[in-house]
Nucleic acid binder design. Structure first.
Lengths: 241, 241
DNA sequence: GCAAAAGTGTTATTAATACACCCATGT
DNA sequence: ACATGGGTGTATTAATAACACTTTTGC
């Protein structure tokens, strides 16, 4: 693999993706940890090829880490402060990993490329967490789902990016019907409600919630789901085709 | 003035500003016409200096054209298609202006710089049209306010950018209290209503509208405005400090 | 006094929230 | 039978839209 500095990328433009998943009443974000000494977490990101739409670049980055395509994806903000560079991060990285990053590891040209100011387009993605098998790149030590409320301290402004992504998600959830991207193919009404409660961090009345969602007229009711529990079996739903 | 290609700009990144004004029941956009043969209109735009926030760059571009600072400004979308370049436009420009743009006018380096693919951050601005004295740059033949519904055919995707800006404006108008940026210091309730009716292109009931706006609790009522008309004088309002 | 337009109150409609009840299920 | 959780209907409240009336202004 060539270094980014040698690739045909647009310079000083990056993409950062906040990948949201949902599991057991928790809104989660997929965050890789870098395979270097020092604890460096960073939201999946990358650069844009000269002949590539920025949306396509975001898709490519997402596919790399999640293994799935056709992901729901939304551009939500451009981070463009002049002071926005990775100088501090890279210097720390090098000082903690001298054997790998000095001499041949990271030459002057590459160092300069990485530490320049970058304008970053923020995307958030909504995925069915069951369909994803998190993929490490060759720069990752691990990649894991973290509760949005318990994100590790990430490099640069990545924690702020994640926070802004959550804001944007909440705003668009009300207007568009995108929440279902976080759920599996079929689901019960209670699961939908719990998802909303998790995202907005507040409770909804059961009966009114059901009415509201069904009134959207986008769900079709399937068979009941018998769990073996000693109570009425809930219906399963899925998005109308 | 130096050519952009020689300036210390971020490469392949541009800013495009849709400047909204309001006058006589019309939502208007400030559009310069280029000082070249051929009818080329283009939304005010520019590039970002290495040590400049993108918001600051947008502000600078706005100030150049409007003469005022402290403009309400909102980033609304990033236009990042791979095919997004000005090749067609520039070639047409050169063919229609050979005397100025061939030879020393526009050298190879500059031509390459201009015709590369650009990722553009779209901003919209809301200004009090009375406070603005439209300023030509040395590349402009004229600069004028055009009704949003009667915009000239602009270069590249600038008409699509303007359309998207209007969409974004409508969306945020409901949530935030930004409409008043389009009005003068003091205004009557009817003027507010007409502004809303213009932006959303639909009528509002007078009494209900008044109630809705006053219930926002952001306006303070001033003296009446006597116009000499043979009817009840309306109150003037202004934003509470 | 009258026409024009502003201001306000009152009713009707609709949407959001709260409350109550019944139903299916496994032990 | 009964505890548990699901589904739905009704009442209450609040928000929105529709309707009606009064007031101010200059001629």
């Amino acid at each position: 693999m060539h270094h980014p500095s040698e690739q045909n990328y647009i310079q000083q433009l990056s993409i950062d993706c906040v990948i949201f998943g949902y599991h057991e009443k928790q809104l989660k974000v997929l965050v890789p940890k870098l395979d270097f000494n020092g604890d460096f977490w960073a939201v999946p990101g990358g650069f844009v090829y000269q002949n590539e739409d920025i949306d396509a670049a975001a898709n490519r980055i997402l596919q790399e880490r999640t293994g799935i395509s056709e992901i729901y994806l939304e551009q939500f903000y451009v981070f463009g402060k002049a002071a926005r560079n990775s100088l501090e991060f890279i210097d720390k990285l090098i000082s903690l990993n001298p054997e790998r990053l000095t001499g041949n590891g990271l030459n002057r040209k590459e160092y300069d490329w990485f530490t320049r100011r970058f304008v970053s387009v923020g995307y958030y993605a909504l995925v069915d967490i069951n369909k994803v098998t998190p993929q490490k790149t060759d720069l990752d030590e691990s990649i894991n789902w973290y509760n949005i409320k318990e994100l590790p301290g990430m490099i640069m402004d990545h924690n702020a990016i994640a926070a802004k992504a959550l804001d944007a998600l909440r705003l668009s959830l009300d207007e568009k019907l995108i929440a279902f991207n976080l759920l599996p193919e079929t689901f019960t009404m209670k699961e939908v409600q719990e998802l909303y409660e998790t995202i907005f961090d507040k409770p909804f009345a059961r009966n009114n919630f059901q009415k509201k969602i069904l009134d959207l007229n986008v769900l079709e009711r399937l068979d009941k789901k018998f769990t073996g529990a000693a109570n009425k079996a809930p219906f399963l739903y899925r998005i109308k085709k």
